[in-house]
Design a protein around this nucleic acid. Structure first.
Lengths: 189, 189
DNA sequence: AGAAGATATGGAGACGATCTCCATTTGTCA
DNA sequence: TGACAAATGGAGATCGTCTCCATATCTTCT
């Protein structure tokens, strides 16, 4: 998919500086508050260079998002390998709340990006969704979880949690959503 | 809160024309695709007039959002008066999905607005949230619903549904979320 | 090492959208 | 109807985005 052309040494260096800076802004939630020109200066490159590497804000965001998703997917895989299916799912979802809580800025940035409909995040999101889908599928196979509600619904709920990070009582409400989802998923007997 | 100064006749007329146009764009989802200047022309007023009435895009959005929310709140009140508490809640939430489905553009617009963190919608949102809170409280009082998860969690889930309107399998997933929330809310015995 | 060719750079300036300002028009009230 | 206040509109200032290309930097070949 990514037909990497061999990149010149200085080019790679700049590209990486750009991503590193972007990651910081992503985390601090200032990703959208900074003029794109200034961002280039901040990373120590000219505007032209910035635009060549990342034609749009979204393209830049995508690059940062990638790492993030990879981490989360690893966690999902690890849980799936070490816990019973239903516990793995529960632990992962609870952990997501912790994660979002710990990276408020990042969550805000992502939510904005998604709502903007950029679509550039689609690939990264797909990976994350796949991880959740696997988790749910395993739990369904284990018999602890109903099979008439897909993983997509869980993703939506997660999205709602991430998008509402500015609510005064966020943490409690986020935990509440997870509780509802988890209890709702329990196979009705 | 709104200390309405008596508005001159032509001013009121323009203001209303502006809101009417905005509502159309809101519904068609083009609210963000149109240059603000052009929007003024479209509504048949000068840019200056537009800016005087609504200093920002968000201010304009707020005005439109108000009507929308009022409708939904009425529905909630009506359901609460005519159905048992738990059915009222269920019907309202299911109805929200229908409503969002029927007004895709509006949902997209709102989601974008919220994610952007404009905050201008806070007041309108509060009204909607109050309606949901009342619905949940009544259901809790009726004993059909657990009391350890607040209405805020339901709002988050709703938000997730609205924000993800571009998912290919949206309708089914949205219904899934509502199912999870409703089943999750049922008082565990 | 040094020259030729390929690749990448930076930032001036074109462009396009937002918003301000005030001379003019329109409504209101006595 | 005259006088005053309120509202208007659009020309142009302002500011962020993005393009373009003369210059600088890497790489490769001899």
């Amino acid at each position: 998919m990514t037909a990497d052309k061999p990149l010149r040494a200085d080019a790679r260096r700049n590209r990486e500086a750009l991503i590193a800076r972007a990651r910081e802004l992503f985390d601090s939630g200032d990703f959208f508050d900074l003029r794109f020109d200034d961002f280039a200066a901040l990373a120590g490159v000219g505007v032209g260079t910035l635009y060549r590497h990342f034609p749009t804000r979204e393209a830049l965001a995508e690059a940062v998002y990638h790492h993030e998703v990879a981490t989360l997917c690893d966690r999902a895989r690890h849980l799936r390998a070490t816990l019973p299916a239903d516990e793995a799912l529960a632990t992962f979802l609870r952990g997501m709340v912790d994660h979002i809580d710990a990276h408020e800025g990042l969550a805000r940035t992502l939510a904005t990006l998604m709502a903007t409909g950029s679509g550039a995040l689609a690939e990264g999101s797909r990976a994350l969704e796949q991880a959740v889908t696997d988790l749910v599928a395993a739990a369904v196979a284990g018999g602890a979880v109903r099979d008439d509600v897909g993983a997509g619904a869980v993703m939506m709920a997660l999205h709602g949690i991430g998008a509402a990070h500015d609510r005064p009582d966020w943490r409690a409400e986020a935990d509440g959503v997870i509780t509802l989802v988890l209890d709702g998923l329990r196979r009705p007997r």
